[in-house]
């Protein structure tokens, strides 16, 4: 259920430069507004794009968030591939891979 809050956090950050600045200056002041479980909070703290992908964050939201975190394109794709090896396929949503591997 907190996947909703996790995605909403990223949605709001992705579209608002002022919020991004506040987030960088005082992360807790933003995160306290969103209900995240421990795994989600850790993934956000670590900017663990791979785990966020596995948790079921919509790919369009995650792609913008990864860019915001400074991921170069190949590293962003690789982070998702690596996470599939570690955690197995995506747990929710429409962004699961077709074969649990990543086709290319």
């Amino acid at each position: 259920m907190s996947l909703y809050g996790l995605q909403k956090l990223m949605y709001e950050l992705n579209r608002d430069e002022a919020l991004q600045s506040q987030y960088r200056a005082d992360r807790d002041s933003i995160l306290s507004n969103f209900k995240l479980d421990a795994e989600e909070r850790q993934a956000i703290d670590d900017e663990d794009i791979g785990l966020l992908y596995i948790l079921g964050v919509n790919g369009q939201i995650l792609m913008h968030f990864a860019a915001m975190c400074g991921y170069a394109w190949p590293d962003y794709i690789q982070a998702m591939r690596d996470a599939l090896q570690v955690h197995g396929n995506v747990r929710a949503g429409i962004y699961a891979t077709t074969d649990g591997q990543g086709a290319i």
């Binding site: 790919g59 995650l62 794709i77 599939l84 990543g102 290319i104």
Partner: peptide
């Protein structure tokens, strides 16, 4: 297309 997934490019 399979954008924003590890299948990106398929």
């Amino acid at each position: 297309h399979w954008p924003a997934t590890p299948d990106s490019g398929k």
